[in-house]
Amino acid sequence: MSLNVPQTLEAEIDELITHYPEKRSASVMLLHAIQEHFGYVSKEAIEWIASKLELKPINVYELVTFYPMFRQEPAGKYVVKVCRTLSCALGGSGKLHGHICSKLGLDSRKHGLQTASDGKFSVEFVECLASCGTAPVMMINDDFYEGVSHERADEIMGKCQ
């Protein structure tokens, strides 16, 4: 099965490649573009990127397994990332993560990204999101939320349709 990359996305990707004197440099940016479009990085996507950049698939695969933001399985429509690191932990992020997990019927002790059974939300307890002064913080897809109480988390997630 090959990857069906729409023309507009391929044009965007071709433009990205021109930013670098060496094509290989574009690999992480291409992985972002592909994951944003398809929701995850499939085996076919890895092969597609490798051939685009004149690399071996392993050169791309080793990036997918190294950089925490890339996933090889589809995730929910909304990916919730709660910050786990010290300042947020002191600000109650453990409880916030626990609250969100129990709300979605997930086990907060599990590592990595987990997706709720309805497929709408995925949750991950991630490392520092660099907003330690407004702990606890979380992201939903590209949007960022500060000083998140349990009530506020409920409200924000309620608006995700």
């Binding site: 930013h19 670098y20 060496e22 094509k23 290989r24 440099s25 574009a26 690999s27 992480v28 940016m29 992985l31 972002h32 950049l53 050169n59 080793e62 990036l63 190294f66 950089y67 925490p68 933001m69 890339f70 991630v126 490392e127 520092c128």
Partner: peptide, 27 residues
């Protein structure tokens, strides 16, 4: 000037790791 995005690895803040990452490799 171009913007290049990392992908969640702390080690990319180390300057030579960052350079490897910008070359499209593990950092």
């Amino acid at each position: 000037i171009h913007v290049h995005r990392g992908a969640g690895a702390y080690i990319c803040g180390e300057e030579t790791g960052l350079i490897e990452s910008l070359e499209g490799k593990r950092a």
